[in-house]
Amino acid sequence: MSDTPIPGYPLRPGRVHEVCGPGAPAFAAICAAPGTGPVLWIREAHTREALTPQGLLPFLDPARLLIAQTRTPADSLAVAEEALKDGTVPLVVLAVTRPLDLREGRRLQLAAGAGGATGLCLIPEGMGSNAAETRWRATPRLAPQPGPDSTPFRWESIKNKSGTTGAWDVLWEPATHRLRVVSPSRE
């Protein structure tokens, strides 16, 4: 039950991935959890939603997080490209607010390939770029029994350039810092 692998997860390094849906920030936090290096989270300064360090605690140490606030989407992309190309930061999370065209997506992909870092774009529904390696939809799911000891999600792999797609019910266990696949979802 627990060790069913999900194709495409963990995210392939040196590539840029995409995630949409209401569980996208948690998806990014779960992707950042196994590492120890810094995590760069790029967002536009005018967004109303803010990450809270207390909310990140079940996933990762908030001291690892660096937040880059940009004025325009173009700045966000430039910062992401710079960070991916450098490769010092193993995971670069980019909150996207407008559709990326193929050129922008491809540039990010090349930068990630050059630096070996993983890129993850948090996209609004349907605004992905064709250049993305994988695309996920993450939605929180109602836990069958109460209690905060595990957090259930449904992860759907909508696109995977080098593997199959599918949908899985997963549980994040904060105590053990482990992702458990409950069952491949059939719907």
Binding site: P25, A26, A29, R48, E49, A50, L51, T52, P53, Q54, G55, L56, L57, P58, P62, P148
Partner: peptide, 12 residues
């Protein structure tokens, strides 16, 4: 950091 009670990941 301490969070005696669960806190939301995103605050608005």
């Amino acid at each position: 950091w301490n969070a005696p009670r669960p806190r939301p990941l995103v605050l608005f």
